[in-house]
Design a protein around this nucleic acid. Structure first.
Lengths: 145, 145
DNA sequence: CTCTATATGTGTAAAATACATATAGTTGGA
DNA sequence: TCCAACTATATGTATTTTACACATATAGAG
C-alpha cells in the first residue's frame, strides 16, 4: 500500500529510501541490483537485498513502477523497473514532504551554528563543514544563472 | 537509554524531535508546555503531551537535561529543564548525523529539480520554492562574509 | 556446479502514535 | 467557602508500523 494517504507526517522516516528509488527510476530504468548500488552512492549504507526486492515488488503492485524482463546481456534475466505516471505524481508529493523536512533542518542548523559561535569554544569541525556547504551552494546557484 | 551508541544510521527517524528539544534547551531553559509550543513552531504538528513529558523524564534520567521546580509565576509549579554538558555533547553528535541527512536531501533536490526542468512540463510551484531557497542561501552566505 | 539475479518467509526489536488516567496546585465564581 | 475548571506534570497501556536481519528458494547462464 506504500502510504497513499495524505497523512504523511513531518517525519519522513516511513520508507525514506522510497523517494530516492522513484527519483532514480524517473531518470532511467534500472534493475534491482543497479538500484542497490545507486542508493549506496546516495548515502544509504546498508540496503538489505531481500528487502529491496520486496519493496520493488510492492511498488509495482501499487503501480508506482512497472517492470519488464530484460533478457539482453549476460546472466539470468533482469527485471528492468521504470517509473509510472502515478509514480511521478507520488514522487512529487513525497518531494513536497521532504521539502518541509529540509526546511526544518535548515532552521535547525541556522540556530545550531549561531549557538556554536556564541556559547561553545571549539567548533572547528562543524565550521569547516558549514563552509564547504556554503561554497557548494554558491556553485549550485552559479550554475542556475 | 536514548540511543547512546554510535550506530546511528542515515535515517534520523529515531526520535527526530530529540535534537530539536536539545537545541531549544541549549539556548534557554524551558518548561514542558513551552517546549511543546516551540516545537510546533519548528514544524512538529502533533506532539502528544504525555509522550513529550515522558521523553523529558527519560532525557533527565540519561542526564542529557536537568530540571528544577519553578514556583514563580501563576499556576502550579513548573519543571524547568536545562541542557547538561552531556546533553550538548549529544546534541553535537546528533547534529553531525543530521548533517549527513541534510546533504542527502540537497542531493535529492538537486537531481529532482533538474528532472522537473527536463521532463515534466508544469513545475512552477516547486520552481518558485527552489528559487526562494537559493535566495535565502545567498543571503546567508552574505551574512557570513 | 557456481555465479548472478530475483524472490519470499520469518522473526525481533524499536519506534511512532494514540488514548486513558492520575496527581496536585491555582483560580474564579456561585 | 466550596466546587468546578484550568494548568502542568506524570505514567499506564495498547496497537501498529518500521527497520533490520537472516534464512531460504528458484532459475538461467556459463
Amino acid at each position: 500500500m506504500v502510504n497513499n494517504d495524505n497523512n504523511q507526517s513531518v517525519n519522513p522516516s516511513k520508507n525514506f529510501v522510497l523517494p530516492f528509488i522513484l527519483l532514480l527510476l524517473s531518470r532511467v530504468s534500472l534493475h534491482g541490483y543497479e538500484l542497490s548500488q545507486k542508493l549506496q552512492a546516495f548515502g544509504f549504507k546498508s540496503i538489505d537485498q531481500g528487502n529491496l526486492y520486496r519493496l520493488l515488488r510492492k511498488l509495482e503492485a501499487d503501480e508506482l513502477v512497472s517492470s519488464e524482463w530484460d533478457t539482453t546481456g549476460n546472466g539470468p534475466a533482469k527485471r528492468k523497473y521504470s517509473i509510472t505516471k502515478a509514480g511521478i505524481t507520488y514522487l512529487k508529493g513525497y518531494a513536497n514532504q521532504l521539502e518541509t523536512y529540509q526546511a526544518m533542518l535548515d532552521q535547525f542548523f541556522s540556530m545550531y551554528s549561531s549557538l556554536l559561535e556564541l556559547y561553545i569554544p571549539s567548533f572547528s569541525t562543524r565550521d569547516s563543514i558549514e563552509k564547504k556547504r556554503s561554497e557548494k551552494r554558491r556553485n549550485d546557484d552559479g550554475k542556475k544563472e
